Computed example of a mutant assay.
Amino acid sequence: MIRRRVLARQLKLLREQSGLTLEQAAPKLDFSVSKLSRIENAQVVIDVHWVKSMLDVYDVGGVRWNELLELAREAQQPGWWRAYGLGNNSYIAFETEARRVQVFTLGYVPGLLQTADYARALMRGVPVRRTDEELDNEVAARMYRQQRLNSEENPLELVTVVDESALYRPVGGPEVLRRQLEQIAVLADLDTVTLRVLPSAVGAHAGLASSFTILSFGELGEPEMAHVEHTIGALILHKEAEVARARVAFECVLSDALDPAESLALIQRLARR
């Protein structure tokens, strides 16, 4: 999804640099104006042959030609999550390309830190019908996502603030929660993970309405986006003003949270209990 967006943005830029409007470029490509517009807005999967035609019309060659064709091929590849029987899940597609995620969660531990038992119990607690196989696949996919926290080739930086209430909620029962707290303590020691706990004593705070995530894409050059979870679904937010509000909210909960050492000490105490 992200690579499709990057490719689309590059193709639009090349058209503009060639001095062609949508109305001028479309007939040269045997496209309708609406089709070319959808391509440039990443609303369709972009065929490699289309890209070759566009590069010809926009007089692009050499190294740039090869780079964009390779990007087009990458954009067509099915996501790894398809092997788990999952559809084109927007959030997983975006997180897979992200370099950093900033996560605030209210009533539960973030997915990137969950144990399999905790994740399974959490998924069973929501009113979404799943077969046993679908549940197994979703849990396995969540565990797969966590591998990037330890990856040397493709690391993912996680900065997370967890509401203190989540550390007491016995999702799956006391023993599942204890093992979950132990895992958090282990993962919090990774160089890629910054974990902070927002104390209940803070009272009202900027994230009280919902959990949310901010995704950053590093060298891909794609603008940040926000993912907001709520009881009956989730939203992906792309508009700069909306993402800016999410950034402000995250900075607020971050400033109210315990520092990493205090947060880890609290989690370790709770795990021993």
Score class of each variant (00 low, 15 high):
R99M: 11
A141V: 11
A116N: 10
V126A: 08
Y84M: 06
W80E: 00
M123K: 07
R145G: 05
E134S: 08
M123F: 10
E134N: 12
A116G: 14
N137Y: 05
R129E: 05
R82N: 10
F94S: 09
G125N: 03
Q102G: 03
A93D: 06
A83V: 09
G107C: 12
L113I: 14
A141W: 08
R145M: 03
V126M: 07
R130P: 00
L135A: 00
A121E: 00
D117E: 15
A121S: 12
V126I: 04
F94H: 05
V126R: 06
L122D: 01
V103I: 15
D132S: 10
N88A: 11
G85C: 13
A83D: 15
V103C: 06
L113C: 08
R130V: 01
V128D: 03
L122E: 02
E138H: 12
M143F: 11
R82W: 04
G79P: 03
L86Y: 06
L135H: 05
L86M: 15
D136G: 01
T96R: 02
T105L: 11
F94C: 08
D117L: 10
P78W: 02
L106I: 14
N88Q: 13
R82T: 15
I92D: 02
F94D: 07
Y91L: 13
N137C: 13
V139M: 10
E134R: 14
L86C: 05
T115W: 13
E97M: 14
Y91M: 13
E95C: 11
P78A: 03
G85I: 12
N88D: 15
V126D: 07
D132L: 06
A93F: 04
G125H: 02
M143S: 09
R130M: 08
R145C: 04
S90W: 03
R145F: 02
E97V: 04
R99L: 08
L86P: 01
A121K: 05
Q114G: 06
T115G: 13
E134L: 06
M123L: 15
E95K: 13
A140S: 14
I92H: 01
F104K: 02
L122P: 02
T96S: 08
N88V: 10
E97L: 07
V101R: 02
G125L: 00
T131L: 12
V128P: 03
A93I: 00
E95A: 12
M143Q: 15
M143I: 14
E97N: 09
V126S: 12
R120E: 15
T115D: 14
P78L: 00
A93W: 01
Y118C: 03
D136I: 08
A116Q: 14
E97H: 14
Q114T: 11
R100K: 15
R130G: 01
A93C: 06
R120M: 05
L122S: 01
P127R: 12
M143A: 11
W81C: 01
M143P: 12
R129Q: 05
E133P: 04
A75M: 02
V126P: 00
T105F: 09
N137I: 00
I92A: 00
R129S: 03
A119M: 09
F104T: 00
M123T: 09
Y84Q: 07
R124K: 15
A83P: 08
A75Y: 04
W80C: 02
D136L: 07
P110F: 14
Q77N: 08
D132R: 05
Y84S: 05
Q77R: 14
P127Q: 13
G111W: 07
R120D: 09
